[in-house]
Design a protein around this nucleic acid. Sequence first.
DNA 1: ATGTCGTGCAAAGCACGA
Length: 269
Amino acid sequence: MRIATWNVNSVKARLPRLLSWLADRQPDVLLVQETKVPEQGWPAGPLAELGYDSVHLGSGRWNGVGILSRVGLADVTYGLPGQPDFDDAAEDRAVGATCGGIRLWSLYVPNGRQVGHLHFDYKLRFLDAVRAQAAAERAALGADAPYGLLGDFNVAPLDADVWDIAAFDGATHVSAPERAALTAIREADPDAPLLDLMPRASADPADRRHPYTFWEMRMLGFQKGRGMRIDLALVNEPLARSVRSAWVDRDARRGEGPSDHAPLVLDLE
DNA sequence: ATGTCGTGCAAAGCACGA
C-alpha cells in the first residue's frame, strides 16, 4: 500500500501533472492540499476514471484540501472540530477519512506570514486544534489503530530542514512557538508519541541529500537547492511499523509547470 | 529582500497569497 501527500498549488493548473503522477506512481491514497477550487471545480470525474474515490473541501480561490483513495474512503470529517476562524470564517484546511483501515488527515496549516502577525497567531491556534482533534480521535480509536496526520504543516521541525538556518533568522516556519506547537501535537500522549517520519530525498535508496519537500518559486529556489522540509507525516507507532520506506518524489518538482511542493510518499508493507 | 507562480476581478493590468 502506498500513501502520499502533495500540496498541488491549484488542482486546476496541476491537473495534467496530477493525473500523470497518479498513473505513474499508483498511490492507493493521496492527500492533497491547496486545491484552490470550490466544490464544482473538483475533478472527481477524471480521478474516478483512474480508479479513485475522492472527497474535497473547498469553497473558493484559496486553500482547499482533498483525499483520493482506491482502498476505501469512510467516516469523512470536513474541517477540524474546534478549528479557529480567520476573518470570521473557517477556512478549508482539513479533511479526515479512514482509508484501508487507516485514519488519515489531509492538513494545510496556515502559512503565518510573519512572526507576530495575526495570521501567525491563527497558525498556532490551528495547530492546537490539530493537537486536540488527534488526541480525542486517537483516544476514541484506541492505541492499536493506525493513525496519521499528513500534509503541508508550514513548519520546518529542525534547523537542518531549511537550506540555510541563518537566512531564517526571525522568520516563520522555524520559530520556537511553531515548533513547540508541532511537538505538542506529536507528544499529546507522552506514552504514544506520533513520529515525524524522515523521508529519503528521492526514490533512490542511495540518495543522501536532505529531504526537502518545498522550494520557493521565486528566486529559483529549486535550481539553487534552497528547500524546506515542511510537508510532514506524523504517524503513530502502529502505522510507523508498517512503513517500509518514506521518500520525496523530487522528480515531480522538475520540468515545466510544477507545484512548488513535491509529494511525500510512504510505502507500507 | 524577491527575480515566480496561481487566482479572480470586470480585465486587456492589478491585488492578493505563498
